[in-house]
Design a binder for these strands. Structure first.
Length: 228
DNA sequence: AACTAATACAACCGCATTCGA
DNA sequence: GTCGAATGCGGTTGTATTAGT
């Protein structure tokens, strides 16, 4: 049987709208079915990914907050590369987002750290003690690639102590998990107080729901719109 | 202003796991 | 119990954007 040609690459606004519409209709399950009935030339898998990582209204958009960054750090030392597990502890963030974040930010941070260490090494050889922090990887179930392991090691995580050490060894900031959770909670309180709807999607200025969805739902109640 | 390198993030792929017939 | 389809996950790649020279 000849398979219908599947579209690949970036999603268009029209495709997004179409997917959002059908997910609203049928729910975010049975992705192959959704892909078929929506008329999108996308695989179910692709539809699911687009929804989970981009279109889902419960997603928080924008940069990671310092609290979230610290939390990712802590959770990675605990769970390793189990991104979905980590994402589960960060409401509104996806595994893909966290994974990307880790790869870019953490690598950069490790590079900076390395630079600092190299600089300090010329003054004080004792700074090389950081390499002993590898205990965090030993406890971590899935820290695999050697580069990431090294990056991780250099982030000064101390496993088992339930604290995060941030900064260089002279200006070390220590955060207990209690402090971090307090910060997360208080920041969430602030967000809530800004008269924002509980659904983060709704106040995202460039969200499809805001800009198009309501419009389409108001004006195109008949489904023929999408299949035209 | 033009070019290059670095960064951010969306999307794909392959494999593992779960679920239902 | 088993088999196939659907779903989920982690790794990787591709591309657009931004920063630096």
């Amino acid at each position: 049987m000849v398979q219908e040609e599947m579209r690949k690459g970036p999603w268009t606004e029209q495709e997004d709208l179409q997917l959002v519409f059908y997910v609203k209709m049928f729910g975010d399950r049975r992705w192959d079915f959704l892909a078929k009935v929506s008329g999108l030339k996308r695989s179910g898998k692709s539809c699911r990914l687009r929804w989970v990582n981009y279109l889902n209204p419960s997603l928080k958009r924008g940069k990671m907050t310092p609290q979230e960054e610290r939390l990712v750090l802590q959770l990675h030392s605990k769970y390793g590369n189990r991104w979905s597990k980590i994402a589960g502890k960060l409401p509104g963030r996806t595994d893909n987002e966290i994974k990307n974040y880790w790869r870019t930010h953490m690598r950069k941070q490790a590079q900076d750290q390395r630079k600092n260490n190299t600089n300090k090494a010329s003054i004080s050889p004792s700074s090389s003690n950081f390499s002993n922090c590898s205990s965090s990887s030993a406890n971590s179930p899935a820290v695999d690639s050697s580069t990431e392991r090294n990056d991780c090691v250099e982030l000064l995580q101390v496993a088992g102590e339930n604290k995060i050490y941030e900064g260089d060894d002279q200006n070390m900031m220590v955060y207990s998990m209690d402090e971090i959770w307090k910060e997360v909670e208080s920041s969430e309180e602030i967000e809530t107080r800004n008269d924002l709807p509980s659904n983060t999607w709704n106040y995202c200025p460039d969200s499809l729901w805001m800009t198009h969805d309501h419009y389409y739902f108001d004006n195109h109640q008949d489904f023929s719109f999408f299949t035209a």
